[in-house]
Each structure stands twice: as C-alpha cells, then as structure tokens.
Nucleic acid binder design. Sequence first.
DNA 1: AAACAATAAATGTCTGACATATGAAAATCG
DNA 2: CGATTTTCATATGTCAGACATTTATTGTTT
Lengths: 247, 247
Amino acid sequence: MKIDPHSPADLSVQIASAIRDAIVAGDLIVDERLPSEAELCAQFNVGRTTVREALKRLAAQSLIRTQRGAAGGAFVNRLSFEEAQAQQITTSTLLLSMNAVSFDTACEARFALERACAPLSAQRRSADHLAAMRAEIHRQAQPGLTDESFCASDVAFHRALVDGAGNPVLSYQLAGAVEAMQPLMNMITFTARDRALIVEMHEEIADAMERHDSPAVEEGLTRLERETRALAMKALAERAARKQRAH
Amino acid sequence: MKIDPHSPADLSVQIASAIRDAIVAGDLIVDERLPSEAELCAQFNVGRTTVREALKRLAAQSLIRTQRGAAGGAFVNRLSFEEAQAQQITTSTLLLSMNAVSFDTACEARFALERACAPLSAQRRSADHLAAMRAEIHRQAQPGLTDESFCASDVAFHRALVDGAGNPVLSYQLAGAVEAMQPLMNMITFTARDRALIVEMHEEIADAMERHDSPAVEEGLTRLERETRALAMKALAERAARKQRAH
DNA sequence: AAACAATAAATGTCTGACATATGAAAATCG
DNA sequence: CGATTTTCATATGTCAGACATTTATTGTTT
C-alpha cells in the first residue's frame, strides 16, 4: 500500500482509496483493527491531519468505525443491511431530485421492480407481512390523515410486500426505489376519492397475497401503477392550470 | 443550523449531518457554494480541523466537491447516475461478501430484478443494445477466454439487457445487483461445456429480444437462472469434495 | 476480594503555520 | 491600446504540536 505524494489527487483521498481497496479485496477483514493514526502516519509518511481525513472519508461510507480510549482505534465495520439501505435511500432520493427525473420514469422503475418481488412474496409471505399490509390499509382509510402520513403509510405497505419475499438482497435493493419515490409522491395532493381508489386496490393486492395468488398480485400492481400515473398526471395538470390562472 | 457541543456524537459528524440535511431539504441547491472553511468555523464555533473533517465526510458521499484557489471552496455536487452507480456497486459488493449472503439468495434477487426489466427492454431495446448483447455472446464463445473475462462479459451482456429498457432509474438500481454478483460468480470455474450451455441460453434471450418477444425473454432468464444455480451448486459440491480429499 | 485511583494509549479538537492552487487585478511591454 | 506577464488575495491542502477526553489496564488500598 503505497501512495504518490506528487499525484494531483489529495493525499487523504489516495490513502482512503488504498485502505478501501484493502477492505474490498479482503486483506482487511471484518472487525480487524487498523493501525493507529500514528502508525498510519509513519506508514504513509504524512501528517496526522491527512490520515484522519482519510479515515473520516471511510467512516462516512460505513467502511470503518472508530473507538476512543486505550484499546480503541479504527476497525473494519461489518456493513449491515440497515446501514447500506439507509445510505442507498438518501443517495436515490438525491439522485431523483437533482436530476429532475420525471415522475413517470421513477414510477415505471419502481413498479417494475416491485412486480419482480410479487411471485416470491405471494408464495412466501408470512402472516406478519400480511397483517402489516392490512394494518397500513386500515390507516390509509382513516379520514383525518395528512398527505404526508398517507404517503408514508403507502411506503410502509409496499415495503411489507417486498419484505414478504424473504430475500434480504431484494429488500435492500428495493428500499431505495420505493423510499426515493416518496418526495415525488408528496408533491401530489390526493383527494378523498383518490385515496379511496388507492385503498381499494391495496385491498385487492392484500387479498391476492392472502390467497398466495401471484398473478393477481402482479395484476393488482399493474393496475395500481396505471392509476398512480393517471392521478399524478391529473394533479400536475391542475397545478399547471393554477399557475396559468395566477398570471 | 446549530450543533450541540455537549452531545456524545463527534462535532464533525454533527456538522456533516447539518449540512447534509440542508442539501437533502433543498436549502442548498446544486452548484451553490458553501461558506468557506473559516466562515463555517465561526458559524459553528469550532476549529478548522473539525469543519474540514465534516466536509471530507460529505465529499466521500459525493454530496460536495471542493476546489482550491481564489474562487474555490466547497460546492454542492450534482449527483450523477455514474457516481451513484459506482458507490452502489461497491456497497452491494461489500454487503454480499461481509454478510455471507448465499449464492442462491443473491442469484434469486438478481434474476427477479432482471426479469422485471424484460418487458420494457424487449419492447424498447435499440439496435445498439441488441448489437452489444450479440458482441458479448461472441466474446463468450471464444475458447481462450479466462474465467474472469468470461464473467465480465456475462455482466456486460446483462447490463446491455437492462439498459435496453431505457429507464435510467432502473439501470441504476440494477447495476448494483448485477455487478455485486460478479465476485460470487468468479468463485465458480465453468467448464467448456458449461460455457457452451450459457452461451446457448444467451443466444436464446438475444433472439427473443430481437423479436421483441417479452415472454420469451422472461422464459429465457428463468431457464438461465435455473442453470446458473445448478452449475453453482455443482461447482461448490466439487470444491467441498476436493477439500474432503485433502484431509 | 472489591473498590478505588493512577496510568497509558488512543481518538477528538484547537491553534498556528506554511504550501499550493487559482482567479483577478495590476503592471509591463510591444 | 491590447496582449502578456507579474503580483496579490483568497481558498483549500498539509504539517506539527498541544491539550481534552475516553477507556482498558494496572496498581493500591481497604
């Protein structure tokens, strides 16, 4: 692990890369302790500031964790599904908002991925998953619910569906897609009628899940996608019209 | 944006969180310049070291970029699909390797997601995507290919399939799933017979894509999944047997 | 033996200094 | 006057040294 002091890249970036590569390559295993900051200084022949900034970079990616005190130091972190998921969600959210991804594009991707889980989830879902879906439907039908809460419940419903597949890799991959949609959905105001329609389709999907009827789940998701896109289009058109009138 | 100097959390973590939240909330927009390090020191009432470590954390997540010189500073970075994808791939790869995710689980997730793209890709794929797939098939059929190159070509084939859907969100989400599988696949040594079988199924899929025949693509992917899992199981069994004999 | 205190080792933070890159203004030259 | 070069101001990048804080270990006392 050597670095080039004359490279145009910052030293702390180079050091972070070197350590990251060692982790990815398996040269440093989970829970293994890295050399202390002082040792790393000597090893790379740089100041402590530089080493520390490199370590902070790695910590920001959850690749290492640090502990203070006598037996402290930097340790290779076991990347958990939860951490990875949280990171993926913020990344996906920013990606959509910063690149002006259209509602249609995001919606299409989300439902395509979700349909991919349908066969597995319909087959394997536990009673808990089904109960979670029913509970969210019940929440969604309550009259006083704010738009944000309605959308949050919608997300929870779909996550229960995805988790029903019992495949953590699938759940992880989809969390980003589903959660990242929420800010886009929040821009839409659903009328009471709209909500009723969505609740109805959720019930249809839950019923199909109860019967382990995979084709019906896929069918329900496809209908839900169609309706969601139609509602979104209507909401966006109305917003545009209001803007027009304002001028 | 205030921080608590008596919190158990490190100051640099708190500052990074505060700025990150401002970016996600849209208070800081793309390409906007953050206050200089000196100004941030005054604003948060901390030393420059602390501010810099916070900025490095954000830079590690591609949320900001920094520029030296007179008009330099830290700027909110537009997260590109490429950057996000690269991050997602390393995260997914580590996630699989560190959590001892079984080949079956990863394989199931990957093919489920890929089948989700099939209808869109079969319908919309351009001539370029098809040509890319054919080119990779041709590479895979060459006799002298190393195992790594064969797997790399396999990944390229599947990425072309996914990209054919013309949905950048879908491509982004799937890149992680497909690429993260590569190290697991690399652990398997395919015999010439195995390779021929895989190439044959790739051709079947490419043919279906050419005819815009979505069900046939899905069918092909399902068969490919079945064969891949069978080959992997055989390879792992042989490896175990060799180990047994060694003792 | 248990409780407490001292110690040592590590990270976290602050300060001040210098190195380096870079844009803009000022000075110089044709 | 216009183009080129120099200078300068302003940032970030790096270093060194100090002190604060946390924490496991070790030693001491009761």
